[in-house]
């Protein structure tokens, strides 16, 4: 376990980068959505302003110490998981814990948030959390199949190795496993909590669900979590299917910075695809989203997975 200087720098920079990128992504998406709505929309920096305002509130209220803990857990989980995602081909910690570890790390934040919101004692929060978890179970099936297909295809569970294996022209997994990529993008929609799968926070149904009792810095923590989790999830897709944004040789600092920029642009692209789907769809009901995810995306993922398994057996 030896880290180069670059790695150490990356370990410290990654959370900051994710923080900035996440809020920037949200700001851009607000502008983007506003333009589709034929509005002017808030400035791109609005998200930073909002978070600062929330943290600047003189007073905030809490129902119990578990609510404080939940807000902490959400940020802990997202910071821990961003460290295991290669950024611009730089593996950060992804050789210390592979995709399976990451898949479970990703759960800390939502579960922590669920704890915090559950502790508020509001049934709207509880319904929101139960919906969030049910949604997770819905997309987990196709997404797990996608992960397994990618892992079997590259014969490694390490995300760093998967990124490294996609180096070079036209070597991206999206070309090798297009069906998996589609299924993953469909799962991404629910992971990001965008419509038609935003049941956990559905304002017109459960009054914004989990956030209903959160205000001030508690809401600020949740917003930081939300912003950073966008980077984590979109970045995970980029690493899995879009070669991790590696275009320049990454051995020089300049190349690494270039790669990080490409990675961020690709992640932003995935996020904007999700946002544009978000703007033109309504919201499914819970049972409908389960049926959706266990239908087409699962079928696509299963086809792709069986292709990988069969070709690994050497039949094709």
């Amino acid at each position: 376990m030896t880290f180069s200087t670059t790695s150490w720098v990356m370990i410290f920079l990654t959370p900051i980068l994710a923080f900035i990128l996440g809020h920037l992504f949200l700001g851009i998406s607000r502008k983007f959505t506003a333009r589709i709505h034929r509005r002017v929309g808030p400035p791109v920096m609005q998200q930073f302003i909002d978070v600062m305002k929330l943290f600047g509130k003189r007073e905030s209220t809490t129902h119990s110490w578990v609510q404080d803990m939940g807000a902490l857990f959400a940020v802990i989980g997202v910071i821990a998981s961003i460290l295991f995602i290669p950024i611009g081909g730089e593996a950060v910690l992804s050789f210390q814990g592979d995709l399976i570890v990451l898949a479970y790390l990703l759960v800390i934040a939502p579960l922590g948030m669920a704890l915090g919101t559950g502790a508020t004692g509001n049934p709207n929060s509880a319904i929101g959390v139960s919906r969030g978890l049910m949604l997770m179970m819905a997309y987990e099936l196709p997404f797990a199949m996608v992960l397994v297909a990618v892992m079997l295809y590259y014969d490694t569970a390490s995300l760093g190795d998967i990124v490294a294996a996609q180096k070079g022209a036209f070597n991206w997994a999206i070309l090798a496993l297009p069906l998996s990529a589609i299924a993953a993008d469909l799962s991404l929609q629910a992971m990001l909590g965008e419509k038609p799968f935003d049941q956990p926070v559905a304002p017109s149904e459960i009054a914004s669900g989990p956030m209903v009792e959160f205000g001030g810095k508690y809401l600020g923590m949740l917003m930081v979590w939300h912003a950073m989790s966008i980077v984590v999830e979109a970045g995970l897709f980029v690493d899995l299917f879009l070669g991790g944004g590696v275009i320049f040789p990454g051995d020089s600092v300049l190349g690494l910075i270039g790669n990080i920029i490409v990675w961020a642009i690709l992640a932003l692209m995935m996020w904007l695809i999700s946002v544009s789907i978000n703007t033109v769809f309504g919201r499914f009901k819970m049972g409908q989203s389960l049926k959706f995810y266990w239908g087409v995306p699962t079928l696509l993922a299963l086809l792709s997975l069986s292709y990988v398994v069969i070709s690994n057996l050497g039949v094709i």
Binding site: G121, K217, V224
Partner: peptide, 25 residues
């Protein structure tokens, strides 16, 4: 590391005022 960051972020502001469970939306 995440814990330290989150704690720094969280405790940079005063703790929330504790309110009753029934004092809710």
């Amino acid at each position: 590391a995440g814990f330290i960051t989150a704690v720094l972020m969280f405790f940079s502001r005063p703790l929330g005022r504790h309110i009753d469970l029934r004092d809710t939306f």
